[in-house]
Design a protein around this nucleic acid. Sequence first.
DNA 1: GTGATGACGATAT
DNA 2: TATATCGCCATCA
Length: 134
Amino acid sequence: MSTPTRDERDYYERIYTVTCQVPHGQVATYGDIATIVGEGCDARVVGHALGALGARADRVPWQRVINRTGGISTSGFGQRGALEAEGVTFDDHGHVRMDSHHWTGPTEEWARAHGFQPLPPRAAKPADAQLRLF
DNA sequence: GTGATGACGATAT
DNA sequence: TATATCGCCATCA
């Protein structure tokens, strides 16, 4: 192997591969994709990767990737329209209803088969965790 | 090699 | 919920 660490294109390809796993009608956050890809990947890196999609934008469901707040940072790419076309609903504030469309991540089987890591359960909310802590 | 930038995240207020 | 601040990491000039 020449560069087993992070080949630029391969690095982005991994992000695209994970993004392609997001099922129809569901959405994932940049942080989720970064967590699954691992390898020092970061939410911003995912954003850059999606921004560098170029011709691949036709094969990668980039519109299903949004920020953690459920908002859309790409108001100029018709992302919201694409999501609505898939059945994704938005609240009155223009944010995606994460409670109903948030992707739970790929299966452990798929993740291991492709060299990724499954998305850890996001249960334990701060307030809830703190409530049970005492 | 350094600084600036970015389709962000988490925490605090 | 929204805003402000800080942090993390990769890419580009």
